[in-house]
């Protein structure tokens, strides 16, 4: 974390060293964010659990276990946040964050849109699934034209196959329009 980047003969850090340093600093920020989020979650759970009424029929009611777990989560996450903060403070100056890798955001968004459209119920399941498989596959293959035919064939066969197996063999109604 606090290590200086490797240097070239002219004294400047190598591109690889700078890239790794960027990623480390980004990961530390993510760690800090998650630790703070979990700390907040622990506090909320502890407060809600503390307000639960005791049970009349047993020594401890529904509250104490989530209360203890909530307190543990909050305290340990605060410690983790403090540790991460210390390592962040020791980062060398002058390093800026860059935008995260877009692939994961695109893929997560694609799955969210796929599920949302499925729930909306305006497109048939097999059509929607084939389109999802084809488009995400082509995106990850950087829209290589040679991948259109194999990806398209896989998309159609899988979408129709899944629909057939679940509706005809497992007798389950899949979401989407019919």
């Amino acid at each position: 974390m606090s290590a200086q980047p490797e240097k070239r003969p002219d004294g400047l850090p190598t591109l690889e060293a700078v890239r790794q340093a960027y990623e480390r600093s980004r990961d530390r920020l993510l760690e800090l964010g998650i630790a703070l989020l979990l700390m907040g979650l622990g506090i909320v759970i502890a407060i809600v659990a503390a307000r639960m009424p005791p049970s009349r029929f047993e020594p401890i009611g529904p509250g104490p276990v989530p209360l203890i777990l909530g307190i543990l989560l909050a305290v340990m996450s605060a410690l983790a946040a403090a540790q991460t903060l210390r390592s962040l403070v020791r980062m060398p100056e002058g390093w800026r964050l860059r935008a995260p890798d877009p692939h994961r955001l695109v893929i997560v968004s694609a799955i969210v849109v796929y599920v949302a459209v499925m729930q909306w119920g305006v497109v048939r399941y097999d059509v929607l699934t084939a389109a999802f498989l084809l488009l995400t596959g082509l995106y990850l293959a950087r829209f290589d034209p040679r991948q259109i035919v194999p990806m398209g064939a896989i998309a159609v066969v899988l979408a129709v196959g899944i629909q057939f197996v679940f509706t005809q063999v497992f007798v389950t109604a899949l979401p989407g329009a019919y």
Partner: peptide
């Protein structure tokens, strides 16, 4: 390749 794996596993 991942461009086959990712969509198929997701579906």
């Amino acid at each position: 390749p991942r461009h086959y794996l990712v969509p198929i596993v997701s579906a």
